[in-house]
Design a protein around this nucleic acid. Structure first.
Length: 252
DNA sequence: AAATCTGCCAACCGCAATGAC
DNA sequence: AGTCATTGCGGTTGGCAGATT
């Protein structure tokens, strides 16, 4: 399998991006759309590798990025999604509009992992039953679409299933579809001191999970719904689990 | 005020998956 | 079917800023 040429190529810039580079990249993408990362830097007049350009765009320049602190609702959702999905940052990010996988990963590593660790010290780890966690493996899909609703509106046509630009529909657009079947189940999950579950393995019996007590339903609205979608999936009877419908669900 | 420590986050690296030929 | 190019993901690192000594 061929390896992607990396940023170590002689003559290419590395490190922090300058405002000028940001402007060049943004201008180019607004004119030509995302994709073709390999050839983009040259066409845009950037001395960066495509990988670096993609990362900069995805994590920082994209107009629909939500800047600012993670809200309590988002914090809550991240924790619960992580308890179900593990380190599937892109999957979690796909359900948090405006947040990037990198941002969520950083947030987890710097805030939540400690918080959770601290919480779990209140329980006896030795007695915690092992839990198997259903951890779907993502399948790569083409970029769905990027729709804008603000004054900088530009829509990346390509794969938009409906051509819609509404915020609501955008938020419903999944970025990843899943494969893998729910597998054999271990012991029941245990709520840790943090209000969630000790997740030690890759597979979980969602029906054994109890986390509803953590919800504050009046406040959570949309994010609550997001979590429930996943929870519902995991509650499916294993025998009836149909991978095709699962994929359809995620691609709806 | 200076030196050191700590936390945060943008960016890089390596690998795996996918598509094109 | 096999190979190569490209893209996407997750883990890790390096540098900066603020806190502490």
């Amino acid at each position: 399998m061929g390896r992607a040429p990396c940023c170590s190529k002689v003559g290419l810039h590395k490190g922090p991006w300058t405002p000028k580079e940001d402007a060049l990249l943004t201008k180019y993408i607004q004119a030509h759309g995302e994709g073709q990362w390999k050839s983009l830097p040259k066409k845009a007049g950037l001395l960066r590798c495509g990988k670096s350009c993609r990362l900069r765009w995805m994590n920082y320049l994209r107009p629909d990025i939500k800047r600012g602190n993670i809200t309590a609702e988002e914090d809550d959702l991240i924790i619960r999604m992580h308890s179900l999905l593990g380190n599937r940052w892109s999957l979690i990010a796909g359900r948090l509009p405006g947040r990037t996988d990198n941002e969520i990963k950083n947030y987890w590593n710097t805030h939540l992992s400690k918080k959770k660790k601290k919480g779990s010290t209140n329980t006896n780890a030795d007695e915690a039953p092992k839990t198997q966690v259903y951890l779907p493996k993502p399948i790569r899909v083409k970029a769905m679409y990027l729709a804008r609703t603000d004054s900088n509106t530009f829509t990346f046509d390509s794969n938009s299933p409906s051509g819609s630009t509404s915020q609501e529909e955008k938020e419903e657009c999944p970025v990843t579809k899943e494969s893998n079947m729910v597998s054999e189940v271990g012991n029941e999950g245990e709520s840790d001191g943090f209000g969630f579950f000790s997740v030690d393995h890759d597979l979980v019996n969602a029906s054994d999970i109890e986390c509803h007590s953590y919800f504050h339903t009046e406040d959570h609205g949309t994010l609550q719904k997001v979590y429930e979608e996943y929870f519902q999936l995991l509650n499916m009877d294993h025998a009836q689990f149909d991978i095709n419908s699962y994929e359809d669900f995620l691609l709806e």
